[in-house]
Simulated scan of single mutants.
Amino acid sequence: MASTGDNSKTALIDGLNGLLADHLALYFKTKNFHWHVQGPRFRDLHLLFDEQAIEIQGQIDAIGERVRKNGAMTLTSIGSVAKATQIADQDDTSLTPDKMIEELRDDNKKLVDSLKELKTHAEEAGDNATDGLIDDWTDMAEERVWFLSSTLN
């Protein structure tokens, strides 16, 4: 029978791998929109999407390393990412800029929700390092939501 500590550690690892999958998928989607955005706001959105993709990419390694530092294995392939992510693929290269913004905003909101849930798991598992990083990652995702939302007004 697994102890409560084992359950909280398993929930933390599962949550971190889900977060890793979400960041990888969101990074690719954000770059997709960066490459395919068109219209009068092209320059501003092209740059905004690139800035956000770079920020997301910068978190990927730290998330994977938190999994390893907790003694577990990370995702290993595109297939494992696809199985673990909550970020839906988007292959339509003709979306309007507003649809792109709405999708990225909503996907980043999903990340905020996941991060808040993951914080509980980190606390329960006694992983102070992950707990502290989650605060920073949440702030970054909330800022991305804010920036994306503000471009729609």
Rank of each mutant, 00 (worst) to 15 (best):
M1N: 15
A2D: 10
S3P: 11
G5H: 14
N7C: 07
S8G: 08
S8P: 02
K9G: 06
N17Y: 03
G18I: 04
L20C: 10
L20Q: 07
A21P: 03
D22C: 03
L24Y: 06
K29M: 09
K29N: 07
K29D: 07
K31G: 00
N32L: 00
Q38G: 03
F42H: 13
L45C: 10
H46L: 11
L47D: 13
L47K: 11
E55L: 14
E55F: 01
Q57G: 15
Q57W: 13
D61V: 13
G64L: 04
R66S: 08
R66C: 02
R68H: 05
G71W: 09
M73I: 09
T74G: 08
T76M: 13
S77G: 09
S77M: 03
I78L: 14
V81N: 08
A82K: 10
K83G: 04
T85G: 05
T85P: 00
Q90S: 07
D91C: 02
D91V: 12
T93H: 06
S94L: 06
K99P: 05
E103R: 13
R105A: 13
R105N: 11
R105P: 02
D107N: 12
D107H: 02
K110E: 04
D113M: 12
L118Y: 01
L118R: 05
K119D: 11
H121F: 15
E124N: 13
A125Q: 07
G126D: 10
D127W: 04
N128G: 14
A129W: 03
T130L: 01
D131K: 10
G132A: 15
L133W: 05
I134F: 02
D136P: 00
M140K: 15
E142Q: 15
E143N: 12
R144A: 12
R144S: 11
V145R: 01
V145S: 09
F147I: 15
N153K: 14
